[in-house]
Amino acid sequence: MIGVIDTEGDTVEWTFPAEPGAVRTARTAVRDKLRGWGLDGLADLAALLVSELVTNSLRHATGPIGVRLVRPPELGDTLRVEVSDPLPDPPRERAAGPDDESGRGLQLVAGSSRRWGTRPGDNGKTVWFELAVPG
């Protein structure tokens, strides 16, 4: 892990090097933080979806990978998770065949989250998704 920024308890950001161990480290960091926030019910799903997006970043981009969790009051019952990398091109959903080894990550994110999307940034792009916080 390159760095961690934890702001006032409702946002945390990590930066990971673009290397294979980043997937496992990001998954663990997300799971641990969500459990620390008392969001145990979201921890495993968020960690799975983060690992899919970090894996996509490793395959297609170079440079550091950012992961951010946001749970500010204005989002209400929503947790926003963001994964950023230096590649400017947005990811594309693909129709993976039954024998394909890849191509299902964005399908998993789209099917498991409340909503998701991408946005350009100054140094690449961010893929984000939102999960409903159990009430």
Score class of each variant (00 low, 15 high):
39 L>I: 01
8 E>G: 03
93 E>Q: 10
135 G>M: 03
34 L>N: 00
6 D>P: 01
78 T>K: 12
123 N>W: 11
43 A>H: 05
112 S>I: 02
49 L>T: 06
60 H>T: 12
13 E>P: 01
33 K>M: 11
113 S>M: 06
9 G>F: 04
81 V>E: 03
104 R>S: 08
109 V>M: 11
98 P>I: 10
25 T>H: 08
12 V>L: 10
26 A>R: 03
115 R>S: 13
79 L>F: 02
110 A>H: 15
124 G>Y: 09
64 P>N: 09
104 R>W: 11
117 G>H: 08
42 L>I: 02
119 R>W: 05
103 G>H: 04
10 D>C: 09
91 P>W: 15
57 S>W: 07
58 L>A: 00
2 I>Q: 12
85 D>N: 15
95 A>F: 07
79 L>V: 08
100 D>Y: 07
79 L>Y: 05
81 V>F: 01
124 G>W: 08
27 R>S: 15
32 D>T: 14
29 A>F: 05
102 S>T: 15
62 T>I: 08
46 A>K: 08
22 A>D: 00
132 A>D: 15
12 V>E: 03
65 I>H: 00
81 V>R: 02
65 I>L: 06
109 V>T: 02
20 P>H: 08
108 L>N: 08
117 G>P: 08
50 V>S: 08
92 R>I: 09
9 G>N: 07
88 P>H: 04
84 S>D: 06
103 G>D: 02
63 G>E: 10
8 E>A: 14
124 G>H: 09
21 G>R: 13
52 E>D: 15
16 F>N: 01
7 T>Q: 09
99 D>M: 11
99 D>T: 14
123 N>I: 05
83 V>F: 03
8 E>P: 00
134 P>H: 09
89 D>C: 03
3 G>C: 02
18 A>C: 07
16 F>L: 12
97 G>T: 11
108 L>P: 02
113 S>R: 06
37 W>F: 10
45 L>I: 13
3 G>F: 03
43 A>V: 02
32 D>L: 13
61 A>W: 07
45 L>A: 11
66 G>E: 13
43 A>W: 11
29 A>C: 09
54 V>I: 06
125 K>Q: 15
90 P>G: 05
98 P>K: 07
54 V>E: 10
91 P>T: 03
111 G>C: 07
38 G>Q: 11
83 V>Y: 05
21 G>S: 15
116 W>G: 05
124 G>E: 09
51 S>C: 13
109 V>S: 10
16 F>V: 01
135 G>D: 14
78 T>L: 15
42 L>R: 10
116 W>F: 13
8 E>R: 14
131 L>V: 07
36 G>N: 05
